[in-house]
Structure formats: structure tokens, C-alpha cells
Design a protein around this nucleic acid. Structure first.
Length: 444
DNA sequence: TTGACTCAACATCCTTTGCTACAA
DNA sequence: TTGTAGGTTTCCATGTTGAGTCA
């Protein structure tokens, strides 16, 4: 008799037959065959194709009473169809605010199998659970945030999924990865490997990663099956928007300090033979800095130069004009450093949010921003992703990285359609004749 | 139960000029 | 002809998160 069983994140195939299935290896210790759990569907298909009778101890197709009242928008319907046509595997890329959760609910209702939803933050976990409890008449389990309760539909953080996948990986027929680009991380890639779920849905607003790790995501979840950009939906389902770049000058003191720091960095590159053509060259420099004091000094100088161009006095000065112009608007100011957040908070009496802001205080600030008590907040990177941020119509990017993802996420914060149909505005403040001009171009 | 703390993991961190090999 | 990727393996700093521990 041939039997399929889930064991510690793997599929064990107990059989007397001689088999040769790609990805499946003989396991002499247990006297059978073994493969990562993600090969489950392929193994089952292969056994069926060869007409081999087998017992399947994984019950992934139990019929859950899932129905949805959501009326999918045209593009959501198209995305769902594309995913189903691809065999219920793959990634859907939709901009922030385009209703990725709704799409996932549609997918869950279409398959009606036990489902694991994996999300990056506790905040998102809370949102998903609220949404699923409203939509479906079944209990919703939770892995993470100090709770470990499993139900046919369970929402987990990536961290908890990593800890539990070897244990529960044989219990779900569908897995939904919210913000699926996180799966590019080395450790997180083990999560989909240890899950048997044949159906896999990845959701993101920014699929491609600069480090190329989206290729690993494609192998683990499936290729991108549907894609819409912000511009595809702006004006219809998202607000129209405008990007305004404002160029500011460094003060003479800042300029001198910037040029000096930059020269320290560049002259080290010249003498060390590092050509700095890609991220991996930068990595080489970082490694060298571990035992080469000059390399370390070069990196620290680069850091100083970054701080100067990103937090220049002229930017903070210019901010006062923007805040005056948008006195009646709802404004989020984004920076790349916590220092700058607190400088602005002190100078303009704007509530700050950084990683140091406790959960309770953070929730309070966002609640007051939502109800209109505050019309402006300033944040470092905390509001980029994974947080339910109230709608705003003006975003001011005082500083940021060259990451296209970060830019898209920040733009997404002002794109919820406005009741009066008005246009959202995103300001980018850039210090001229610094590396920031290049950084700003890259992220677009 | 809460808050403060530590720890591990992840992300970004880069330049600008020209060489070589290879694929489309 | 044109466009694009090209070797390495353990790490400067900063920002952020979730899990775990302890009082």
C-alpha cells in the first residue's frame, strides 16, 4: 500500500514500489520517499498519472461553508480569474488601496478549503481577522501576538508561520501570503517549503525586488499572474495624483561638510580598486570594513554625507511653507531617519511616530489623525507598510531611500479616492548636487 | 496582564565610466 | 548590433518588526 503523510514540514511517501519522481528522494531511514511539503501536489498528480493507488492522510479539501457578499470590481474579477486559470497558484500585484483583501476573500470562497493567511505585522493580522470574521461565518484562528489558536481559517504572522509551519503545514489547502515580497528573505523562504497547500496566492503592491529574490518567490508561490499599476487605477478606483519635486540648496556649511565626507568615501573607492557598480560591490566594501579601518571610515563618511543631504536645513525650512500652503489638508511627512522626525516634531509641533513610539501611543496618534484632531503627522519608515494609516491627501517626502517599494508605499498613503474627487499631491524634497538626485531618480 | 527589555531577522546601504563575455 | 550581467559568504550603521523572557 502507498501512503502520503505530512511529517515535520515534509511529505513522507510510504510504499513498496520503486519510484522515481523529480524532487522526491529515497529516505532509507524510514523506508520510503521524502520531499519538502510543497511538493505534495506534484507527488499526488504523479501517482494519479501513473495509476498508482494510494491513501492520502492529508485532508486539505474539506468543504468549508465559505461564501462572500463582496461584489468584485472588474479588475479584481480579472485578477481572480487569472489566478484560477493558472491553477490557483501565483502572485497578484495590485497597488495599495486596490482591494487585495477582497480579492483574497474571493479566492477563499472560490476554493472553500482550509486556509492559512500569512501577514508581516500584528496590525495587519488584526485587520485581516476583523475582515474575515465579518465576511465568513466560521471561527478565525491566530498564530502570533502571543496567541496560538488554530482554526480551518487561521491568520499568522510570518514569524509565527516560520515557527509553526513544520507542525501545521499539512492542515491547509490554500495559503495566502499578504505582502508576498517578504518571502524573498532567506529565513522566510522555508515557510512555503514546509507547507503542503497546493493552492497559493501571493499579494503585493511591489513584486520585484532589487536583489532579485522575487525569482525565489516565483518558485515557491508561482509566477506573477496579474498586474496593475497605480496609473492603471488612478482617477477611477484610486485618487488622481500629482508628484512635485522641489529642489533645495545645502547651506555653505552643509555643502562643505558634505563634500568633505563624500570625498573621503570616493577617494577610498579610488585607491581600493572597488568600482561600485552594483549593490554587491557595496557589500564588498561593507565586508572589508570589518577589518580595514579605512574602509570603515569611508562608510561612516558616506553615512555622514547621507545625513547631511537628507536632513538639510533648507528642507526643514521649506517644510514650513508647505505646511502653511496645506493648512486645511491632511498631511503625512515621511523621513528616512528618526532624528529628523523628532527635529520636525519639535519645531512644528507635529506628532511623531517612529519605531520608538509604543503601540498604545502610536494607536492614539493615528486615531486622532483619523478623527481630525491632528491634521499632520511625521514618521520615519513605520507607516510605509503593514499599518492601517488613515487617509491623507498630501504626502511630503523629506527624505527616503532609493527603494521603489518605499516610494510606491508612501504614494499609496494618499491614493484612497477623495469624496470631493480632488487630486492627491506628493512632494519630494531633493538636495541639489548631491547623491540624492540620483536616489530620487532611481526610486521612480 | 502589562511593560521593559533582549534578540534575531530583514531592508537599505552604492557610482557614473568604461571593460568583457554572452545572449537575443 | 544591442543590451545586460558580470565573481562573494558573513557584515559598517540605522530603522523596524515579532517572539520570548522576566519582573
Amino acid at each position: 500500500m502507498t501512503t502520503l503523510r505530512f511529517e515535520d514540514g515534509t511529505i513522507h511517501l510510504a510504499t513498496d514500489l520503486e519510484l522515481s519522481i523529480p524532487g522526491v528522494e529515497a529516505d532509507p531511514r524510514s523506508g520510503g520517499y521524502r520531499a519538502p511539503a510543497m511538493e505534495y501536489a506534484a507527488i499526488r498528480d504523479e501517482l494519479e498519472r501513473r495509476g498508482i493507488e494510494f491513501e492520502d492522510t492529508l485532508a486539505l479539501e474539506s468543504d468549508l461553508p465559505l461564501s462572500t457578499t463582496y461584489d468584485l470590481r472588474e479588475y479584481q474579477r480579472a485578477a481572480l480569474d487569472a489566478w484560477l486559470d493558472a491553477g490557483a497558484t501565483g502572485v497578484v500585484e495590485l497597488p495599495t488601496g486596490a482591494g487585495k483583501t477582497v480579492l483574497a476573500v474571493g479566492a477563499m470562497a472560490a476554493l472553500s478549503v482550509p486556509t492559512l493567511v500569512v501577514v508581516p505585522t500584528i496590525d495587519l493580522q488584526d485587520q485581516w481577522i476583523r475582515e474575515l470574521e465579518t465576511e465568513f461565518d466560521v471561527p478565525i484562528g491566530r498564530f502570533g501576538g502571543g496567541e496560538q489558536t488554530q482554526e480551518p481559517i487561521t491568520v499568522s504572522t510570518y514569524d509565527s508561520a516560520y515557527l509553526r509551519a513544520d507542525d501545521v503545514g499539512g492542515d491547509f489547502g490554500l495559503v495566502v501570503f499578504d505582502e508576498v515580497h517578504h518571502l524573498g528573505g532567506q529565513g522566510y523562504q522555508d515557510i512555503p517549503r514546509m507547507l503542503a497547500a497546493p493552492a497559493r496566492l501571493g499579494l503585493t503592491a511591489t513584486f520585484e525586488r532589487p536583489d532579485g529574490a522575487h525569482e525565489a518567490v516565483e518558485e515557491l508561490v508561482g509566477p506573477r499572474v496579474y498586474q496593475l499599476s497605480v496609473d492603471d487605477l488612478a482617477g477611477d478606483h484610486l485618487a488622481d495624483y500629482e508628484i512635485r519635486r522641489l529642489e533645495v540648496e545645502l547651506t555653505p556649511d552643509e555643502r562643505e561638510a558634505y563634500e568633505q565626507a563624500q570625498e573621503t568615501f570616493v577617494s577610498y573607492l579610488r585607491t581600493s580598486g572597488i568600482s561600485m557598480q552594483s549593490g554587491s560591490d557595496y557589500q564588498k566594501l561593507v565586508m572589508r570594513s570589518g577589518n580595514d579601518p579605512r574602509a570603515r571610515e569611508a562608510l561612516l563618511a558616506k553615512q555622514r554625507a547621507r545625513d547631511i543631504m537628507m536632513g538639510s536645513e533648507a528642507k526643514v525650512e521649506h517644510l514650513s511653507r508647505l505646511l502653511a500652503r496645506h493648512r486645511d489638508d491632511r498631511v503625512i511627512i515621511f523621513t528616512a531617519s528618526t532624528d529628523l522626525v523628532y527635529r520636525i516634531a519639535t519645531r512644528y509641533l507635529v506628532p511623531p511616530i517612529t519605531a520608538e513610539t509604543g503601540t498604545k501611543e502610536r494607536r492614539q496618534i493615528l486615531e486622532r489623525f483619523r478623527d481630525g484632531t491632528y491634521d499632520t503627522v511625521v514618521a520615519a519608515n513605520v507607516l510605509d507598510e503593514g499599518v492601517d494609516v488613515p487617509d491623507a491627501n498630501v504626502a511630503i517626502l523629506l527624505s527616503g531611500s532609493g527603494s521603489e517599494r518605499e516610494f510606491t508605499q508612501r504614494l499609496g498613503r494618499v491614493l484612497r479616492p477623495k469624496s470631493d474627487g480632488s487630486t492627491a499631491v506628493l512632494y519630494e524634497l531633493v538636495s541639489v548636487e548631491t547623491a540624492e538626485e540620483r536616489v530620487a531618480n532611481r526610486r521612480r
